[in-house]
Write a protein that binds this DNA or RNA. Structure first.
Lengths: 240, 240
DNA sequence: CATTACCGCGTACAACGTACCCAGTGGAGG
DNA sequence: CCTCCACTGGGTACGTTGTACGCGGTAATG
């Protein structure tokens, strides 16, 4: 009853009116959890481990956070705050969106575990709200709000899609201990078998291309991003 | 030692040479797991629950699958097989990619839990391989392989991005028991508070738009998809 | 000063993935 | 044919997880 009215995390007040001073804080807990998740993965960031990180007892965390899932929401929103969108409807929409895309990608690469937490739409944390306001403001003067939403979904989809691949291949490469160009060619006997079978010509082409990439990951990303921005430009009225 | 050589699931043989006939099969287990995940979510599909579904003991599953993570890989690949890409380099690339995008979206909506499993790149299951061959074949004659990869990442990124939002909002709506148009406006007191604060004009616009959507989810998807295909068309040489 | 609402946290429990072990089974080699 | 042993299904058990509950202590309110 008393808890049910807080339909989400952001409505639940952090500091109560009375009682002893809390020894910790949501921010501190969130920070510790992110630190662990960055270093060892999200599944390592258990309640006990997080508590140990800040020198607290495991159950103390529940004074600050209703559940681990909610803590992950807090963590995800904290990450949104890392994307710099200050002064963002700057007038140059292409520069703004490029900066956003770069920031989003860099943030994902800093915190790869974010790929494993499914975004729950209704969780509008303060950082996510600020991001929405600034980012959607970039095209707000040029297109209708629903088209704006679609275009931003396209942009974020591109970034997240490419970064997801970067993350998973990086994870695999770290696991195997080989360099990226060597990995596909030598280490993975399964891939080798597929290539040698001759049944997958296009897959083989991909493998060969990965063997001698003539574009760095960054360049690949930037190149694709230009394509996406071109696409957005085409959807804009001619005034821009 | 004996297990370490099977670097991934697909190399591990399903049927051994000797011994009694197995009572179940990988396909049967995978199917049961998918059935449970569809109905009650991936986290409900525990080893014990899956075993119960097919009338087996919990530990029997480990005769067929090395770990639950590997079983999830099997499930994910089975899902790839649901996307119909038969006869796919048909000559009309726009039709092919539309069919693929529709199929991918429909599959995700049938199995929303797929959003929670991070794709691990090196897991090239048979269905995924077939999908790659057919899909990448569509543009293979027109663009270089690395550009092809980028364009397909763009397309898949768009589909997955929009579908992720559909899934999470559908989940929230089912949880609240309200209609979609009512949900944002009435039920969510947090959203109401944000709107009334007046500090988030663009967020408010989004909420108002969602209150009276003039485009269905399907139409929104199709509209955005046309934008993406236009973008792909722009990246193609003029011969197409 | 008494009350009350909070604090940190130890204990406990259910559910999870899965290591280990067992008796039984059926194809291969004699 | 029999013997062997690689395999089968599955019961038991262990370590780890999220977290419900309740304790004794503390600080703001009346």
């Amino acid at each position: 009853m008393t808890d049910a009215e807080y339909v989400n995390i952001w409505m639940r007040p952090e500091r109560p009116a009375r009682g002893p001073k809390p020894a910790y804080s949501r921010a501190q807990i969130t920070e510790a959890a992110i630190r662990i998740a960055d270093a060892e993965g999200l599944e390592v960031a258990t309640m006990r481990r997080i508590a140990a990180e800040i020198g607290a007892g495991a159950m103390s965390l529940y004074r600050y956070v209703p559940s681990r899932d909610n803590l992950v929401e807090l963590m995800a929103d904290r990450l949104m705050g890392e994307i710099d969108v200050t002064g963002m409807p700057s007038g140059d929409w292409r520069a703004d969106l490029t900066r956003y895309a770069d920031g989003l990608r860099a943030m994902w690469l800093r915190h790869p575990w974010i790929a494993t937490v499914q975004r729950s739409l209704p969780s509008f944390g303060p950082n996510q709200l600020l991001l929405i306001e600034r980012l959607m403001g970039v095209l707000d003067a040029h297109v209708a709000i629903d088209e704006n939403l679609g275009l931003m979904a396209l942009l974020a989809g591109y970034v997240e899609g490419t970064v997801r691949e970067e993350i998973s291949s990086a994870k695999e490469i770290r696991r195997s201990g080989l360099s990226e160009s060597e990995w596909m060619a030598r280490s993975h006997s399964y891939v080798e078998r597929l290539v040698k079978s001759g049944e997958y010509p296009i897959f083989t082409k991909i493998v060969m291309e990965a063997r001698q990439p003539h574009l760095s990951r960054d360049d690949q990303f930037r190149y694709g991003l230009q394509r996406v921005l071109d696409c957005i430009a085409a959807a804009l009225p001619s005034t821009a």
